[in-house]
């Protein structure tokens, strides 16, 4: 039997399909169909001439799957390498394949979620939104281009290195480097979040506390805001952030919190606390 070999072209088409991983997301098996569809170019290559094996492989990859969609590409590469070995007669059982797949879901989501959703997107989105508020098209363009360049690179190198390194990569994922990457990006993300809380949160409390003419004849108005600013600018925003973190940790739906803040805004405006 001739040796089955996945071509670069197959990897490319798996990369293309990996961009649609979540298309048929459903509450039963989540990204299962998307994973199966993404694996098809590779499965077709290695099992194309053995229909029974192909059917089994398709069924295998319709099992439950759900992880961060960008890092999922690496799992596709690794599983692709294993399927190729299996097709060439290596003793890899269905259980092993499922085990590797399911085993990678958690650790990779654990790396991908804080990096992409926790750091990269909020930081780039805040940068873009800051520019967009001035009405400049540059804002959306910077966000879109920067995010997608990094995203597509993650997809492509995920599939490529996943395939080349195969199971070797499985050991690395549990290792120190991934942990470094996650914590490092959290450090950067948190620092930027701290800055955003201070800079891009607008709270203005013009409530007048005292009003008098001083010895020089100047009219001095002390508002709630000026007192708070002399303590620490941004203090109210900081306290609000902590309150939200606390509420979210207690499992309150973010939309409820948002509606609550709207109510505070309306009532505060009506009684003259906010402006």
């Amino acid at each position: 039997m001739e040796e089955k070999k996945v071509t670069k072209n197959d990897l490319f088409w798996t990369f293309v399909r990996s961009n649609f991983l979540l298309g048929s997301f459903n509450f039963e098996r989540m990204q299962a169909i998307g994973f199966c569809v993404s694996m098809m170019p590779i499965l077709k290559r290695v099992y194309g001439d053995r229909k029974d094996e192909l059917k089994k492989a398709l069924k295998r990859h319709l099992e439950f799957f759900n992880t961060q969609p960008f890092v999922a590409a690496a799992i596709m590469g690794i599983i692709g390498a294993m399927e190729e070995k299996k097709a060439n007669g290596a003793d890899i059982s269905d259980a092993t394949l499922s085990g590797v797949k399911v085993g990678l879901i958690g650790p990779l989501a654990g790396v991908g979620d804080p990096i992409f959703w926790g750091t990269l997107r909020p930081v780039l989105a805040a940068l873009g939104a800051g520019i967009a508020l001035t009405g400049s098209l540059l804002g959306p363009i910077i966000f879109f281009v920067a995010f997608n360049v990094i995203r597509l690179a993650t997809h492509w190198y995920g599939v490529k290195y996943g395939y080349e390194k195969g199971t070797e990569l499985v050991e690395n994922i549990g290792g120190h480097q991934m942990h470094f990457l996650t914590e490092g990006s959290s450090v950067l993300g948190l620092l930027v979040m701290g800055a955003l809380v201070a800079k891009w949160t607008t709270v203005n409390m013009p409530l007048v506390i005292s009003e008098y003419d001083n010895a020089l004849g100047d009219h001095v108005v002390t508002t709630l805001q000026s007192i708070l600013d002399s303590l620490m600018p941004g203090l109210v925003a900081l306290l609000m952030t902590f309150a939200c973190m606390w509420l979210l940790k207690r499992g309150i739906n973010p939309l409820i919190i948002i509606i609550g803040l709207f109510a505070i805004g309306i009532v505060g405006y009506a009684i003259g606390l906010f402006a």
Partner: peptide, 30 residues
Amino acid sequence: GLQVAGGFIVVVGYAMVINMMNAGKLMVYF
């Protein structure tokens, strides 16, 4: 009032991101 709230509604987003990073001792960087 909604516009006023629009100025600080962003804190919910910040809080979600911070919680999801499970900051703990990294909060010092925040």
